[in-house]
């Protein structure tokens, strides 16, 4: 099967619904294993940091949730651009499915960042470039969802919210490079940096497990939400009866 044939087949709602269902266990099972290892090791077995002591253990939640906040938004922006240019409704469905997930992980990132900032910086919040741009990302997610909810007609909601998602993408590189461009209170990159990661292997491996685990968790949750979006958008999903609701 050619790539385009495969792509067109996947872009049909019944096929995408079925594929998302089939992918779910491939995402959640390794996610549970990776997060069990990564979070458990990060919390109890990784050595304390020489400067921050045990407080640094928040990184095992904070950094992956920051990554998910950017990954979900970038995926939303790309899917929205695809939906606007090629009029693929499934891309709108994917964007709508990802928004609440991205928003919740952005909120988790901000709150765990505050909980880390209090003992390290002496403040829960500072109007710092990194913190402020991440807060703007949360507002973009909330704005996206509010805009969708403001329209009764789904097609208009899709178009308007897709434009917002694409425009908001400009904030993503600002978040990433904020610690480089401005004199930030926030520490610089720990994992992806020139000269290699700034942490020993005993801390790094569980962190990488958390990054992969949380990414798979997001994929799993996105599959569930995408299936719901697909069914809600179908006028008469007779194929649902043929597939059987439990035949993933």
């Amino acid at each position: 099967m050619g790539m385009w044939t495969w792509f067109h087949r996947l872009a049909s709602p019944p096929s995408c619904y079925r594929t998302a269902g089939q992918l779910k266990p491939w995402f959640w099972i390794p996610a549970v294993l990776l997060l069990g290892y990564g979070l458990g090791t990060g919390l109890w077995f990784a050595p304390p940091d020489y400067q921050q002591g045990d407080a640094y253990r928040i990184i095992y939640i904070h950094a992956p949730s920051a990554w998910l906040s950017l990954l979900a938004y970038t995926t939303m922006a790309v899917a929205s651009a695809v939906a606007l240019v090629w009029r693929i409704k499934l891309a709108h469905a994917l964007t709508a499915a990802l928004a609440p997930l991205g928003a919740s992980f952005t909120l988790l990132c901000l709150v765990t960042g505050s909980l880390w900032g209090r003992p390290m910086w002496g403040a829960y919040w500072a109007w710092d470039a990194r913190l402020t741009s991440e807060l703007i990302l949360l507002f973009l997610y909330l704005g996206y969802m509010a805009l969708r909810a403001a329209y009764d007609e789904r097609e208009r909601a899709d178009r308007a919210s897709a434009v917002l998602a694409v425009v908001g993408l400009v904030n993503v590189p600002v978040i990433h490079f904020s610690v480089v461009w401005w004199n930030s209170l926030h520490q610089g990159s720990t994992v992806i940096r020139s000269g290699g990661p700034a942490m020993p292997t005993s801390m790094l491996i569980p962190l990488l497990a958390c990054f992969f685990g949380f990414t798979l968790l997001l994929a799993y949750l996105a599959c569930i939400r995408l299936r719901a979006e697909i069914v809600l958008r179908e006028r008469k999903p007779t194929w649902l009866v043929n597939q059987g609701r439990d035949h993933d």
Partner: peptide
């Protein structure tokens, strides 16, 4: 973890709530 425990365990607890709710 001393005084850091509340922040570290608070973060883990919050993560569990967010993932569970999602």
């Amino acid at each position: 973890m001393g005084s850091y425990g509340v922040y570290v365990y608070g973060s883990y607890l919050l993560m569990a709530v967010v993932v569970g709710l999602n």
